[in-house]
């Protein structure tokens, strides 16, 4: 019996086309539907994720990091830290994995129309925001100032370095980078990413903020945004919890009354502000 490909728990076979190491422990996989054209993921929105299945090892939820305008080639950027992501890191071009998705709530783009945009991120948190950045650049005329504030642990851990340089060279957006630690060889900013907020060129009264990074970073980012006068309801965050089914059935990613996989991972800050003390199940 033929099984419809949209069966939500059935992974679709995808082939690794390319592996690119972004930093010592972070890599980007380029994946295409195994059957050639069709039979794969046909569209996604910025901020959504897929469940990537390494056969015989397990599944991991990983956000798309490529352009939504080019869904035939799926990019996923992740860090090799757990058993599944370490197995993904060892894949070679031509090998097969399974994909379920896309899942989750995306970054709200229409809500940013006519407003300044500030994107605040750190470390691997830039990966789920890159599809949004591509979308904003493609539709640049719809928005006011665009500011990207990016923090990394060290200069060697700056993600998508070449692309960030390209964004920095654009005249229609501001990109500020800081690192937490560095030697004297680094002549850029040194300090946590929240230090960039007070003087960034956005009007808090008419701005929207997209934030993704470790929760402790997001917490202090919100504090700095509030101090700058940004209303909480115009701040969006991407939460990370241990996602298993991707459909809100299994409960692994429950965050109070929310399921991160289904109700998120992108939330309006006001929806989750009181839930941040709830530890992972």
């Amino acid at each position: 019996m033929a099984v419809a490909y949209h069966e939500p728990m059935l992974p679709l076979p995808h082939r690794v086309r390319r592996m690119t190491w972004e930093t010592d422990d972070t890599f980007t996989m380029e994946l295409v539907a195994a059957g050639g054209g069709g039979g794969g993921i046909t569209s996604f929105a910025p901020g959504q994720f897929n469940m990537l299945y390494v056969f015989g090892v397990g599944e991991a939820a990983i956000s798309m990091s490529g352009s939504p305008s080019n869904p035939d080639t799926l990019l996923h950027t992740t860090r090799a830290v757990g058993s599944v992501t370490k197995a993904l890191a060892n894949l070679h071009p031509g090998q097969l994995i399974g994909i379920r998705g896309p899942y989750g709530v995306s970054w709200p783009v229409d809500e940013a129309e006519g407003r300044d945009i500030v994107i605040i991120t750190g470390g691997i948190g830039l990966a789920p925001l890159r599809p949004l950045i591509y979308t904003l650049i493609e539709q640049r005329e719809r928005f006011g100032n665009i500011t990207i504030l990016f923090g990394a642990r060290t200069p060697d851990e700056i993600l998508f370095r070449d692309e960030i340089e390209q964004w920095r060279r654009r005249f229609d957006m501001d990109v500020l980078i800081t690192v937490d630690r560095a030697s004297r060889d680094w002549r850029g900013r040194l300090g946590v990413v929240t230090t960039l907020i007070p003087q960034s060129p956005f009007d808090p009264k008419n701005s929207i903020a997209y934030v993704c990074g470790p929760e402790v970073m997001m917490y202090f980012t919100l504090e700095a945004l509030e101090k700058r006068g940004m209303p909480r309801e115009r701040v969006f965050v991407s939460m990370e919890r241990n996602m298993k089914c991707g459909l809100g059935f299994c409960g692994h990613c429950q965050l109070g009354p929310k399921f991160v996989c289904k109700d998120g991972p992108v939330f309006r800050w006001t929806e989750v502000a009181s839930l941040l003390d709830i530890r992972e199940i």
Partner: peptide, 15 residues
Amino acid sequence: VSHSRLQMIDMFDPH
């Protein structure tokens, strides 16, 4: 002090 504390906790360390 607040910024130094955040640097100390090494928030981007995955481990």
